[in-house]
């Protein structure tokens, strides 16, 4: 049984042009099935957010060069016209941002902002749109929603702001929710609440979700499948179980080792030596080779192919290539 994928990205390249070129994404391919939650895991600058923005075509057209195929529900996102794009954004795919304080307009009330999206996507009158907005606020479990409807973003707490942001993103009934580190700006206790809420809302509506984070602990809570990104490429894909239990790629191993669990007092924490590449040109060899403990001569010569190990696991590393051949 093959389901039509909700999102299909194949061989995506994103290049930022400027005084210095930046190859932010280099040949990224991924599939997302409806109702699935995919986590994109990686450190800053690995191209996670850029991938999300490319999915909604939010990158400035004149400064970026995008190659590759992006399909959502079988439609090519890159070739949508202005009107289709407007109904696609918010109606089919929607996005939650990292810092809700910045992502909500300070001069309008929460209700006004949600109602604006509602009128756009459901064609409701203002009064009905406000009632809809109130329902949305109830759905994201904001305490005393009637009052929050008329509050400005600076009048409510960070957690509530992120809830309002989620309500805003879901107001158009999207099939796909893109979450760009939605819990990073929140404190730990609120983080968990928001994660649970997202998971619950996702289950309720059956939408697909791509969840970008650099926190593996967050990914464990919410994701079904994880893609680990490094230097604009996915280096390892697999179910969250497999990745946490048995990471294949040296980078994933490093990421998992770099946590506080089992760390002893007075001992140095484990880190991955070195820093990510600058990506001024597209990588021709394995991007992780300079930092990798298992580097071989071959790693510096050519880029490793993605190898499918089992049904769900794909790894881009020479070690796995050798093992399978």
């Amino acid at each position: 049984m093959t389901q039509q994928p909700l999102v299909k990205i194949s061989d995506l390249h994103v290049l930022f042009k400027g005084q210095k070129n930046v190859c932010a994404v280099n040949g990224l391919s991924l599939n997302l099935l409806p109702g699935q939650v995919l986590g994109i895991l990686g450190e800053s600058g690995s191209g996670k957010s850029v991938t999300l923005k490319a999915l909604l075509r939010l990158l400035p057209a004149h400064k970026t060069e995008i190659r590759g195929l992006i399909e959502v529900l079988g439609r090519n996102v890159m070739s949508l016209n202005a009107a289709d794009l407007a109904s696609f954004r918010g109606g089919i795919a929607s996005m939650i941002f990292q810092d809700p304080m910045l992502a909500l307009d300070p001069v309008y009330t929460i209700g006004d902002q949600i109602a604006e999206v509602v009128t756009r996507h459901h064609g409701l009158k203002r009064r009905d749109a406000m009632a809809y907005a109130l329902d949305m606020l109830k759905k994201v479990r904001i305490p005393s929603p009637e009052r929050r409807l008329k509050a400005y973003p600076h009048e409510i707490s960070g957690g509530m702001r992120q809830r309002a942001m989620i309500a805003l993103a879901l107001a158009g009934n999207p099939k796909l929710l893109l979450a760009d580190e939605p819990t990073t700006a929140l404190d730990a206790s609120v983080q968990m609440q928001i994660l649970l809420l997202l998971r619950e809302l996702q289950k309720e509506s059956g939408m697909g979700m791509i969840f970008v984070t650099h926190d593996i602990g967050v990914a464990v809570e919410i994701c079904d499948v994880v893609a680990v990104m490094y230097a604009g490429q996915i280096v390892e894909t697999g179910t969250i179980r497999d990745i946490v239990k048995d990471p294949k790629h040296p980078y994933t191993k490093g990421l998992l080792a770099a946590n506080l669990h089992g760390a002893e007092r007075g001992k140095r924490l484990e880190t991955i030596p070195g820093s990510p590449p600058l990506l001024e040109s597209a990588p021709t060899s394995c991007s992780f080779a300079p930092r990798c403990a298992y580097t071989q001569a071959v790693c510096r010569l050519k880029a490793p192919e993605a190898v499918t190990i089992s049904k769900n696991i794909t790894v881009r590393c020479i070690l796995e290539t050798n093992m399978n051949s």
């Binding site: 909604l56 939010l58 407007a86 109904s87 696609f88 954004r89 918010g90 109606g91 929607s94 996005m95 941002f97 992502a103 909500l104 307009d105 604006e116 999206v117 756009r120 996507h121 942001m165 805003l168 993103a169 107001a171 158009g172 893109l178």
Partner: peptide, 8 residues
């Protein structure tokens, strides 16, 4: 950007 992402 959020407004754009919601289809404005």
């Amino acid at each position: 950007e959020a407004a754009k992402a919601s289809g404005a």
